[in-house]
């Protein structure tokens, strides 16, 4: 019961805080691609892979008091922050047997990177069935406005290689 919620709570228990919904979306997608058994269904949206299921599940975790959500108004949008509550920690004690590899190193590595970079990595992973050249061409086509440089693409490939090996 609520195993998919518990997996997300486990993720938050290994982060101090996640700043930004976009970052959260991309982090879970990247972890999923790295083999972590998150089951949220992703589709390609305007800004890359996006999961409505994840959005709603996080909202449920907040409503249940397992996650703390704060938001601040920026000029044209809101920015959200998430952290685990005591209730969330208590909830997790019911799932101690749930097999789940440690994510802290990946989380740390992702937190070192900007949202822009995570958007690039997750978009490249979305097209992982293509060859490298085709993938780069596709990413440049669907992310025209982001103007990713060759250098950023190269860094993203290195990040993906480290993630998957």
């Amino acid at each position: 019961m609520l195993n998919n919620h518990a997996k997300l709570v486990r993720f938050f228990s290994q982060c101090e805080e996640v700043v930004g919904r976009k970052r959260l979306q991309k982090m879970i997608y990247i972890l999923k691609k790295a083999g972590y058994p998150f089951e949220e269904r992703y589709e390609f949206h305007f800004y890359g892979p996006y999961s409505e299921e994840l959005t709603l599940r996080v909202e449920e975790l907040c409503n249940l008091g397992f996650l703390n959500e704060t938001h601040e108004k920026k000029s044209n949008y809101h920015q959200y922050r998430y952290s685990l509550t005591e209730g969330g920690e208590e909830f997790l004690t019911h799932y101690e047997d749930m097999p789940f590899k440690d994510m802290t190193e990946h989380i740390h590595n992702m937190n070192e990177e900007s949202s822009r970079f995570l958007e690039l990595v997750s978009t490249m992973l979305y097209f992982d069935q293509l060859s490298r050249d085709e993938c780069e061409e596709k990413v440049r086509a669907v992310k025209k406005k982001m103007n990713y440089t060759d250098d950023e693409l190269q860094q993203a490939w290195s990040f993906i290689d480290r993630l998957l090996n």
């Binding site: 976009k22 449920e60 809101h78």
Partner: peptide, 23 residues
């Protein structure tokens, strides 16, 4: 004995969201 959550359903609400999250 089944717990069913609204996030298990394939429907979504209108969300302005955060910049860069969803158009």
């Amino acid at each position: 004995l089944v717990v069913d959550s609204s996030s298990d359903l394939p429907y979504d609400f209108y969300r302005p969201g955060e910049e860069g999250e969803r158009l």
